[in-house]
Amino acid sequence: MSDAIVLRNLVKTFGEKTAVRDMNLTVPKGSLYGFIGPNGAGKTTTIRMIMSILFPDKGDISVLGRKSALEAKDRIGYLPEERGVYKKMKVKDFLLYMAQLKGTDPSGLRKRIRLWLDKVELPDVDNKRCEELSKGMQQKVQFIASVIHKPDLLILDEPFSGLDPVNMRLLRDLIYEQHKKGTTIIFSTHVMVQAEELCDHLVMIHNGDKVLDDTLEGIRARFDPRSVVFEPLDASADVKRLGELPEIASVRRDRGHWELGLTDGATIEQAIQQVTTAMVPLRIEVNRPSLEDVFVQIAGTAEGQEELRAQVRDESAVTVG
């Protein structure tokens, strides 16, 4: 079997609220999947069901070829969204304990813990109590706890939340490293930009429904807005005039630039040539849909758009990259 995770018709309700509705999903081995969607969409509930921490009301789950994650726990690494450490425990004891619980071969384990701590740039903390560490440092320790047993499947629930840009980059590199080794990785985030930069395949969840399940390229092709972003060199130029060109169907002002919609049948090349001839550009580029746009397009109604955008944008966080 070549699929790491297979979910079939998964349903989970909490009282009145349906958290996950009829979810079907296949995650092939070795892939890097992103679960995206705003907070409360059902990402964590889906992940918890994959981990057998919650049990679905209906549907089947297969994890690493087993009927339930319980049978494959030792081959899975999991960094939950609700994560913590034993405050009074020493860092190395905590990691040792977690590794033991995962049934890791004890030989060389201490050395491996030390190597990992060096790798996440926490070389001198092994004898410190966890409570002496900052939140970001604790998060790195928790990441080690999720990979120390060399899992085949790594599930990271909002791994970047609360990290500064430097550590985000560090963590991103570590996730890539695991991916290169062949580990199947699922990671969830409500910040679309992070998913855009990390994953090769995206699953979008909204109000308990899977609304998108495709590669980044596929999504971009599917949701190609067929438009060009344009800024004239002469700021006072009458851009609206461009609407008269046969290739341009619409002209719209959008956040400091203009968006020129293409007519059916017109190609990007033709449009760009015609526009640059008609007006000298400061900037002209093909409009690539952001995940945020895609999400808003799928989920949104016209009036709630800004609210939806706010939910999936992490204003405080700097882009990973």
């Binding site: 921490i53 969204e81 994560r83 913590g84 999720s146």
Partner: peptide, 16 residues
């Protein structure tokens, strides 16, 4: 303590 430290879900990833 385990619950308020939020260490419990980390543990549940390894044990039932």
């Amino acid at each position: 303590e385990e619950k308020s430290n939020r260490v419990v879900e980390v543990l549940l990833s390894a044990v039932s």
